[in-house]
Write a protein that binds this DNA or RNA. Structure first.
Lengths: 219, 219
DNA sequence: GTCTATATTGTGATAGAC
DNA sequence: GTCTATCACAATATAGAC
């Protein structure tokens, strides 16, 4: 019967306070952005005192970096993995579309948050990716780009695909996957799209997008 | 020789202080976001005293709304205009791509700023668009959507185009135009794309995108 | 209209009891 | 580890001279 027997608040003491804080921070940072987020709100959301945030993460900056790192850590590896994998362009495109939509669907604020953060703190990206991958990201990106380039050129030479630069190709694929999430509020207003309609929209998109992309490159 | 003859600071008194402030605010809000922007920095950027910002715009919130309204006011009408115009789908797509890229190129931070703002303050959008257009935006959007729908259905029935919903169609077009700007920082890192390379990238895109989109919908 | 000085709040962070 | 109380400073906003 040692330890705290009394339960002081609704959230029972279970030792995973740090995770609770991180989770709350994720929620708040994603909806308010780093600059707009308030430590007070995070503490409230986590059901703990504000001082505890500092106990675990010293500063707001530390907390925000932990959140951002974790958030980006969900997407960057997924992208790199699919692009780096063996397989035809068709397979890569389909895998990527499915993986991206399935992943982000669970945390739909993620893309908007990441884009916004990168927009306001572009300097964070290189350091972040380095830490994620453990190596300098620039040569890795270059290698991936190169492999894609080779595949696209082969196809163009064989006449089975229109010529397109790997940069344009990648931006097209990313754009079509990312934008619907980043622009969710716009869709809400412009199309009166509620949560259910948005989910249907995503289902439809998941199925149609690979064909759309590949068809666009037919000769 | 009445009035102020002496020029106290590098920026000469020319009476358009309000515009100078608004311009500075636009710059700062776009790069820092509304929450991250500091009135102090705006005043410095405008070359005036901080108190003047309050003289002209009372509060930071007032200033930020003026900026956001002006920013969105550059894009929303352009979108509506093209979509509402007469002409074939081919014409609309090409016009839109060209208009969008040409417009935004001059202020490349605009899309990222708008997406970020809408992400953090989705409640602002309806009120904003109403004020811009002067009427309730929802029926207008519905009407535009409907016209597009009719055109798409006609094409599908004639067998000259794959069936696609107007929502998916619009999101595709917007995504392909908007994303490169919103993701500019990512491109910078991932492809080592400097300003000149980005401009070339946009030229290429402006030329290729209409074909890409229309080709994707070939039967 | 524009400035300097100052009031007033908001917000991140720490000290110290328990 | 968690709380309450409080500090220190940053940031918005106002008063009032010129």
């Amino acid at each position: 019967m040692a330890g705290k027997t009394r339960i002081t608040r609704s959230a029972e003491r279970n030792g995973d306070t740090e995770r609770r804080i991180l989770r709350a921070a994720r929620t708040v940072f994603m909806r308010r952005g780093t600059a707009g987020a308030r430590m007070h709100e995070i503490a409230e959301e986590a059901g703990v005192n504000q001082a505890l945030l500092h106990y675990y993460f010293r500063t707001k900056d530390g907390l925000s970096e932990a959140v951002f790192r974790e958030a980006a850590g969900r997407l960057v590896p997924a992208v790199a993995q699919v692009l780096g994998s063996e397989g035809s362009l068709e397979q890569k495109v389909e895998r990527f579309v499915h993986l991206y939509i399935d992943t982000v669907r669970k945390t739909p604020f993620l893309p908007g948050y990441i884009l916004a953060e990168l927009h306001h703190h572009p300097e964070r990206l290189p350091g972040l990716v380095s830490r994620l991958v453990g190596v300098d990201p620039v040569p890795v990106a270059r290698a991936l780009r190169h492999r894609l380039d080779v595949q696209l050129r082969e196809r163009a030479a064989a006449g089975t695909m229109r010529p397109i630069s790997p940069e344009q190709f990648l931006v097209n694929v990313l754009a079509l996957c990312v934008f619907p999430f980043a622009a969710r509020p716009m869709l809400n207003v412009a199309f009166g799209m509620n949560e259910r309609a948005f989910q249907r929209f995503l289902d439809e998109r998941r199925a149609a997008l690979p064909g759309f992309i590949l068809n666009a490159l037919r000769p």
